[in-house]
């Protein structure tokens, strides 16, 4: 069966199945299990209404539990076993990771990514949001800066190959260097340490639009009378921006920052498609992929390390969400 036909069939079965499940489960609950006619209609309605939320939630909870909650435990459990999965080695995989230079490099690089990518994207996003705010063509400018959001990490990596290429007739950086009189082209992706930053530029380029859209909405939400008051008091535009606007949108800046931080810890595509992790550019997600299909024990151990790094952000997010709900 061709995959396309299979796809159409899946849509039909999937959507039909969902609709059918919700409709009939609801019907059975009301007519068969707790009928509203016959004895105790009142008690039955109450009971049906207690069960119904779980009926609505069940498919989602099932999917979430199976694909996101179980793997946390499953991955941890698997990481305690050797490569073949038949011998319990306790912390052996973690000890091996710590002893591995590649792991330490990727941990360090990931640390750089986590600092510089959110910082860069938030900074440029804030800059773009503020600068385009009053412009007549601001919306066009915004949507052009926002555009890379639609581009895949692989596509973006390829796009930036035309900037970084080790050839003055392909890569713009080398073309500029040649114009300035440099003799030989350099491969910027092979310069130790700094090549990490050239890769980060790609992700910053993608994420700036996201930061800009959210921060721009937040800037619009800053009460105008605070700004007017500052103007009357003689504040210059920079003071208005840094001392009036930024403090008032600080909460949003933090949200943007953490969202991008989480993303950074998941993205392996850019490193994979540009350097393949060579030249000292490995980060944890790409390091994990180098073990995937080869050594499940190691791969799950790396994944669990990523989980540990994410956990503080996760707890903070949950606390924020609970605060908002109250």
């Amino acid at each position: 069966m061709s995959p396309l036909l299979q796809g159409v069939l899946t849509i039909v079965i999937g959507v039909g199945g969902c609709v059918g499940y919700f409709y009939f489960a609801n019907l059975i609950l009301d007519k068969v299990i707790f009928p509203t006619k016959g004895p105790n209609p009142g008690r039955n309605i109450n009971r049906a209404n207690q069960v119904r939320p779980w009926l609505f939630l069940f498919p989602a909870i099932f999917a979430l539990g199976l694909y996101l909650v179980y793997p946390v435990i499953g991955s941890f459990y698997r990481s305690l076993f050797n490569r073949a999965g038949d011998e319990f080695i306790g912390g052996g995989n973690y000890a091996a990771l710590l002893a591995d230079d590649g792991f330490r490099t990727s941990l360090f690089n990931n640390f750089l990514w986590v600092i510089f990518v959110p910082a860069g994207a938030t900074f440029f996003g804030l800059l773009a949001a503020q600068l385009t705010d009053r412009l007549k063509w601001g919306n066009i400018a915004k949507s052009l800066i926002f555009m890379p959001m639609a581009i895949s990490f692989v596509g973006a990596s390829l796009i930036w190959k035309f900037v970084y290429a080790n050839d003055a007739d392909i890569g713009m950086i080398n073309a500029v260097r040649e114009m300035l009189g440099a003799e030989n082209p350099v491969d910027v992706l092979q310069i130790p340490f700094w090549n990490n930053f050239f890769l980060m530029v790609i992700l910053i380029w993608i994420q700036t639009g996201f930061a800009m859209v959210i921060l721009s909405a937040a800037l619009r939400g800053v009460p105008e009378d605070t700004i007017e008051a500052a103007i009357i008091d003689g504040a210059n535009p920079f003071q208005i921006f840094f001392k009036i606007k930024v403090p008032q949108i600080m909460a949003t800046i933090v949200v943007v920052w953490t969202t991008i931080t989480i993303l950074v810890l998941k993205v392996f595509d850019i490193v994979y498609a540009t350097t393949g992790g060579n030249f000292g550019t490995e980060i944890l997600p790409s390091y994990m992929m180098s073990y995937m299909f080869r050594d499940d024990g190691r791969a799950t151990a790396v994944a669990f390390v990523i989980m540990l790094i994410v956990t503080p952000v996760m707890i903070w997010n949950i606390m924020q969400a609970r605060k908002e709900m109250r």
Binding site: L64, A299, A303, M307, M325
Partner: peptide, 21 residues
């Protein structure tokens, strides 16, 4: 509790799910 769980699951790295799933 469920809402909090959903917020928490938003950030669970996909990498964890690959091998077990």
């Amino acid at each position: 509790l469920l809402i909090a769980a959903v917020v928490g699951l938003l950030v669970v790295p996909l990498q964890l799910a690959l091998v077990p799933m």
